[in-house]
Simulated scan of single mutants.
Amino acid sequence: MTSTQPSTEAQLDRPELREGSTGEAVKELQNLLKKYELYTGAIDGIFGPATTKAVKAFQHRVFLKEDGIVADKTWRALYKGAPVDLPILKKGSKGDLVVTIQKILLTTKDYTGSADGDFGVRTETAVKAFQKRVGLPQDGVVGDRTWFEFSKIHH
C-alpha cells in the first residue's frame, strides 16, 4: 500500500526560485513565509529584496545554507515547518553542526562549555536537559524532534 501523501524526504515538484523570479510559485512562497511571520510584504508574486531577506531568515531557522535561493530542501522545510535532512548527532559526533547545537545550548543555558564542535559528555548532558525541558525523551541524541525544537530557539 503506497501513501498518496508527499514525503518530506521526496523531492517536491516546485520550481527553484530566487530574487528576480515572478509568478504563482512566488506568491505561494510569500504566503508560506508570511505564515512563519518572516515576510510582511505584499503577496505580489515578485521575488524582491524583502522576499530574499525572509527566505534567508527561514533558512537560518532550519539550519540550511542561507543563500536566499528556494530549491528543493528549502521548499520541503517550508512545507514541513521544520528542518529536513539533518544528521543524527550524538556523543562522538564532531563538526560544524555540533558547534551550532552547542551555541544554541549556550543560549538556552543548558550548556556551559565551549562551542568546540566535539559532542562529548557535557554536550550530551546539555542535550538531555534541553530535551527534558521541552518534553522530549531524554536520550541525549539530536534527531528530527530535537532539531525541530532547536529550530524554535532564536539562534
Rank of each mutant, 00 (worst) to 15 (best):
T40S: 15
L38K: 04
A129V: 02
I88V: 15
T108W: 05
K73S: 10
G48E: 03
R18Q: 14
T4I: 12
P83Y: 02
R61D: 05
L89H: 08
D116F: 09
T125P: 00
A129R: 13
A54P: 01
D116Q: 10
R14P: 00
P49A: 10
M1C: 12
R76Q: 12
E9L: 15
D139I: 08
E16R: 05
T51F: 02
T74N: 09
D85R: 09
A50E: 13
V134T: 09
L33R: 00
K128E: 05
I88K: 11
G135R: 10
E149P: 05
R61F: 04
Y39A: 01
T51W: 01
E149Y: 05
E24P: 03
Q131T: 06
K34R: 10
R76Y: 06
P137C: 11
E124I: 04
R122N: 15
E66Y: 14
P137T: 15
S151N: 07
V70M: 06
D110P: 00
Q11H: 11
T40D: 14
D144I: 11
T8F: 15
Q102V: 04
A82R: 09
T40Y: 13
Q138I: 13
E28Q: 13
G81C: 07
K152E: 08
Q131M: 02
P137Q: 14
K27R: 14
A77N: 04
A42S: 15
A42Q: 12
R122E: 15
T4Y: 11
K91V: 08
T2W: 07
K91G: 07
E149V: 02
Y36N: 02
Q138E: 15
E28K: 12
K73C: 04
G23K: 02
L136D: 06
E149L: 05
T51G: 00
R76N: 08
E37G: 02
E19K: 14
F150G: 00
R122H: 14
L64M: 08
V127L: 01
S114L: 13
D13A: 14
T146N: 10
E9Q: 15
V142D: 06
K27W: 04
A115W: 01
V134C: 07
Q138Y: 12
K73Y: 05
L33D: 00
D118P: 03
M1E: 13
N31M: 11
K152Q: 12
G92S: 07
V26W: 00
Q131A: 01
D44P: 05
T107F: 06
I43D: 09
K152V: 05
R61S: 09
T100L: 13
P49H: 07
V84P: 01
H154D: 13
K91P: 04
P83A: 07
A54V: 06
A126T: 06
L106W: 05
D96S: 10
K65R: 14
P87Y: 07
T100A: 11
P83F: 06
V141T: 15
G117E: 00
K73N: 13
F148P: 01
F150M: 03
T4A: 06
H155A: 13
A82H: 09
D110Q: 12
V99D: 08
T22L: 08
V121M: 12
G135V: 11
A54R: 00
Q59F: 03
F63I: 04
G113C: 09
N31C: 12
K132W: 04
I88T: 15
G135T: 10
D110F: 04
T123S: 14
T123H: 09
T22A: 07
K103M: 08
V134K: 03
K80I: 11
K35P: 04
I69C: 04
Q5I: 15
V84T: 03
T4G: 10
